[in-house]
């Protein structure tokens, strides 16, 4: 994909609600990416987007059930890990490097589940270090939630535009990076 080969780059989107996944699909298509219906190692792959699900409503640590923590949070991290392994296998089959983009759930007031976001962040960095020599880039998009200094909430199109950038050859030297899309919330 990075060499602008004659055939269009192939991307797969794993996870995500239909609205966000749809926005990402549209943004990738605008970049000339052919978006596959499913991740199929035999077809080869250039771009993998994994969109983590929100795992809980706002809850305190005290009210968080251990079963939910291991089942839902652990399950989502595992899903990210499995998607990464499958995606990388498919990229290796094609042998042209690739780009992985994780999309974290919005940072909000899910105190006990912030661990998912940070787990995905560190998975991103570790994978970036390991896969860099193969030309496979790994980055994470971190959407915000709720009110922002810019005065509006983060829209699916905002997240999708950052995903499309991170997946594109325009981010050729970017790996292991956080791409925050939160209208200035974290800066405040």
């Amino acid at each position: 994909m990075e060499d602008a080969a004659t055939s269009p780059p192939v991307g797969a989107i794993v996870g995500g609600d239909p609205v966000l996944a749809g926005a990402v699909r549209e943004a990738l298509r605008r970049e000339g990416v052919e978006v596959a219906e499913r991740l199929d190692a035999a077809e080869g792959l250039d771009i993998l987007v994994f969109i983590a699900r929100e795992v809980a409503a706002s809850v305190s640590f005290a009210a968080t059930r251990v079963e939910d923590l291991s089942g839902r949070l652990g399950g989502e991290l595992k899903a990210a890990f499995v998607a990464l392994q499958d995606g990388v296998s498919a990229m290796r089959a094609k042998g042209a490097g690739g780009a992985v983009v994780f999309v974290s759930p919005p940072s909000a007031d899910h105190r006990a589940f912030d661990a998912l976001q940070q787990g995905l962040r560190l998975l991103t960095k570790a994978a970036a270090l390991e896969l860099g020599p193969e030309g496979i880039r790994v980055n994470i998009v971190l959407p915000g939630a709720g009110d922002t200094p810019l005065g509006r909430a983060c829209a699916p199109a905002d997240v999708a535009a950052s995903v499309a950038f991170a997946a594109s050859p325009r981010a050729h030297f970017m790996t292991g990076a956080d791409l925050v899309v939160d209208g200035g919330r974290l800066a405040a």
């Binding site: 991103t124 960095k125 570790a126 970036a128 270090l129 860099g132 880039r137 922002t148 200094p149 810019l150 509006r152 983060c154 829209a155 905002d158 535009a161 950052s162 499309a164 950038f165 981010a171 030297f173 970017m174 790996t175 292991g176 990076a177 956080d178 791409l179 925050v180 899309v181 939160d182 209208g183 200035g184 974290l186 800066a187 405040a188």
Partner: peptide
């Protein structure tokens, strides 16, 4: 494309800072 992006640190370093 970055209409909702402000106040961020965008690191573009080939992965050097991920370590």
């Amino acid at each position: 494309e970055s209409a909702h992006v402000t106040g961020i640190e965008l690191t573009v370093d080939g992965g050097r800072g991920a370590d």
